[in-house]
């Protein structure tokens, strides 16, 4: 999987058009197992959410934001799911709540995931949102409304600021070698 390119340190703002999905979106729907015989991000992205929103990938522009309901990413532990979303062009996922394995996988591969129940309920599809990952502040640029997402705990910030789980561990390993 590609190294996470974006970290909270490096990314000032995430901005893009909102795509909405409902509650309990499972990882089989995000990327069906029939595509799991390959693991390249570009290939997975082509089939991202296709059973729910056909041809989505063709319509998503880099930076766009997926806004979901409760329990986003439930089911299988496949890391292919956050990878597919990232390569499809989504800059982040905002949800009412996340399933735990998905949440952890997303952080590990460098896809910001933000818990913000208010946004999940109030923001309609198609508006432009701007997210400040460091503060959790989310702005609706169409009407100026501001929301606050859940801040990352310090432990996770450390992983994110290292650029994801692998660079984080690599740093630790190198430190030990010295």
């Amino acid at each position: 999987m590609a190294e996470p390119e974006k970290t909270l340190d490096k990314v000032d703002q995430l901005k893009g058009k909102v795509w909405k999905v409902g509650d309990d979106i499972d990882t089989d729907v995000i990327i069906a197992a029939r595509y799991l015989n390959r693991s390249e991000g570009e290939y997975l992205a082509e089939h991202c959410l296709e059973d729910l929103l056909p041809n989505l990938t063709a319509k998503v522009k880099p930076g766009d934001i997926l806004v979901a309901g409760k329990n986003f990413g439930c089911g299988s532990s496949r890391e292919h799911a956050p990878v597919a979303l990232k390569y499809a062009g989504f800059s982040c996922v905002i949800a009412h709540s996340f399933a735990r394995i998905f949440y952890r996988n997303a952080i590990n591969i460098g896809l910001p995931v933000i818990v913000a129940p208010e946004v999940a309920e109030a923001v309609p599809e198609g508006v432009i949102l701007e997210v400040e990952p460091a503060t959790g502040v989310i702005r609706d640029l169409t009407n100026g409304q501001t929301y606050r997402g859940e801040a990352f705990p310090p432990f996770m910030l450390e992983i994110l600021s290292a650029g994801g789980a692998i660079p984080y561990v690599r740093k630790k390993v190198n430190r030990r070698d010295v």
Binding site: S77, E79, I101, N105, I166
Partner: peptide, 28 residues
């Protein structure tokens, strides 16, 4: 790296599913 790893709780073990990156860290 499989969500049904939680099965082994049936034996009184703590077991949980993770993604591939966490698994790589665990292997290392």
């Amino acid at each position: 790296a499989d969500s049904h790893t939680c099965t082994y709780g049936g034996l009184g073990a703590f077991s949980t599913g993770v993604g591939s990156t966490d698994l790589a860290v665990g292997m290392a």
